[in-house]
Design a protein around this nucleic acid. Structure first.
Lengths: 342, 342
DNA sequence: ATTAGCACTCTCATCAATAGAGTGCTAATT
DNA sequence: AATTAGCACTCTATTGATGAGAGTGCTAAT
């Protein structure tokens, strides 16, 4: 039982067709629409083999075939590249348009997730940049009132971040500025992770000048601790998913949404996806989550100034249009990287 | 045809019961479970009157009654207060718990929307503070690189806001600081709206000192313009809504989500709700949106330092538990106001 | 290796029959 | 005048039977 070219063509046709119709594909259908110059009986024969190999399955005895997760996997790895679809002019324009107006950072993330949702007709997901590995560029302290200080932290990727620190002692604006200058001098260009590690030690050298050690330490102790920061994740519109026939049973949809909206679940899936690669497709059971067994996730990195900083994803049924989704993610990731790199 | 006490009791029972069972309520049901000491025939008679008055309706001839929008309205205005339900210890604890850990501002908004979703089993919505009416406390310019300046704006409510400004000319840190100082001196304590209005005029007095007028103007022209800023709205979990039987047809759900996720629609509904009051319930057709005719929205203001700054809402089916939802919104709004006021 | 032919299986839509719930009306009762 | 028992009536929801249709797998011929 070896998989020959015709069988590949049949598998390709089944996946391709099933993606648009969402109905099981029969042998007759294949010969009629994908000129293979063989009879339906031959196709039937090949399909039987493909089924035995685990690439196709039947919903019931007298139905056509649908791809299995293994079938999709083979399609994605070996066949998909022949069907590349580029974005239409209209789609390209829509994306470019969205990024034209300068927007606040969170807004960019939000718009991106919605854009992906709309264009793929599935759920768009954006994982915001993780600052831990980013390097320090500037830091400022602004006194809000007697017991609160606003810390503004700027990284070399041009990201900025605020935290409000509560303090229980008086400290002058001048002292605040002095401390900020010291931190900047000592840690400029170092990753926030390293800054956090080395902070305590360095602080010792300067503390006597401004306050007791404890006070200063209180002020900045959590400032660089992004470890326990929850990853910022943005989910796009849910409405498009609802149109997919695989989600027509609300019962299922309910469980799926339950899972998805517990956002750390998705964060985990996406981060795992990008451990080694900058692009990944995870199909159905490969996700290792029973609730997600009918879903696939495509993930694509984006960069800021050439440095990978986050990811965008599509979540849809395993029957989703992989080629199209990949093109869309590609295009958006490229534009997004440009925008964020300025 | 006047509505007497017994009829009120019947209407109350129908609404109360329908809220939990989501099934039409028959006359037999009422006498059995809500001891009225009359026969089912009498109840039937009263129900007929209530139907003629437009408070109840029948899904079909041989079914029990369900409340109309007018029925819910009467319930909400006249009957609801007798059924007040306070939050359980567990619910109170859950809310308090969520706000215990200090969180970044957006995170607070996000958590709140999810909290409302979870506790009401519907969609929680949070409208973030609108800064337009807030007053200026401090402003800082931080040079990011050659052509970008980060503006940090702090209001007297303790809110802060950043914008990145692109500039196409060189300006020294000292000059930036000087301009910030001037703005602060001139506009401290004034509402951002007013600041925006008066900015141009004031700028004239100082421009010669630092740059050409045009350059400075470019720098701050949009800085205080929050008019066209999109309102920041946060939608909580969608998954709970899916359990409500009125949303069991995906077709409908699809349209509803379409509408909801076009966020300006919800912003409009919520803002309209709070024009004059600090609390409001809008029921079904009152929303004036065909798609939302089976939904109600309850909205409640929250404040920062005593000043109303935003709103939290529940969106659910007209059959939602109004009393419970009101209690939950009340409790959360109070806590949220505390948190945001520090 | 391919194909025509065909019996077989399973789904899906339709239809009729039936049970059950709840009504509205009428006439009797309080 | 208000309440109630009684009952015919209406509509829904469920069930089971039926038949058309789709697509298969197998066999025997090419």
């Amino acid at each position: 039982m070896v998989i020959n070219d015709r069988m590949k063509a049949i598998l390709n046709a089944v996946v391709y067709r099933y993606i648009t119709t969402a109905e099981p594909i029969g042998s007759e259908m294949i010969v009629k629409n994908y000129g293979l110059n063989v009879s339906s009986a031959t196709v039937r024969h090949d399909m039987l083999v493909l089924e035995k190999l685990g690439f196709l399955k039947k919903p019931h005895t007298s139905a056509g075939r649908v791809p299995t997760d293994k079938g999709y996997r083979f399609y994605v790895d070996n066949l998909m590249s022949k069907n590349v679809v580029n974005l239409s002019r209209a789609e390209q324009r829509e994306i470019v348009e969205q990024y034209k107006i300068r927007k606040e950072f969170n807004e960019v993330m939000r718009v991106t997730s919605k854009l992906i949702s709309r264009l793929t007709n599935n759920l768009g997901v954006v994982l915001a940049p993780n600052m831990v590995s980013d390097t320090l560029k500037d830091i400022r302290f602004i006194s809000l009132d007697n017991n609160r200080v606003l810390i503004t932290l700027i990284t070399n990727s041009g990201l900025f971040f605020q935290k409000i620190m509560k303090i229980n002692f008086d400290i002058s604006e001048d002292n605040l500025e002095a401390i900020a200058r010291i931190i900047k001098r000592e840690f400029y260009g170092k990753s926030l992770e390293i800054v956090n590690d080395e902070m305590l030690e360095k602080i010792y050298r300067y503390y006597f000048k401004y306050q007791t050690l404890e006070s200063i330490w209180k002020l900045i102790e959590n400032c660089f601790d992004f470890q326990d920061e929850e990853e910022n994740i943005f989910l796009g519109n849910r409405c498009y998913m609802l149109r997919q026939p695989e989600f027509k049973e609300i019962e299922k949809l309910n469980y799926l949404f339950d899972f998805i909206e517990e956002e750390k679940n998705l964060v985990q899936i996406i981060k795992k996806s990008l451990l080694n690669k900058q692009f990944d497709i995870v199909i159905g059971s490969e996700l290792g989550e029973k609730i997600m067994k009918d879903c696939s996730v495509i993930t694509r990195q984006y960069s800021i100034k050439g440095k990978p900083m986050g990811a965008i994803s599509v979540l849809g049924p395993t029957r989703m249009n992989y080629t199209k989704s990949v093109s869309i993610l590609d295009f958006i990731a490229t534009r997004l990287s440009e925008i964020l790199s300025e």
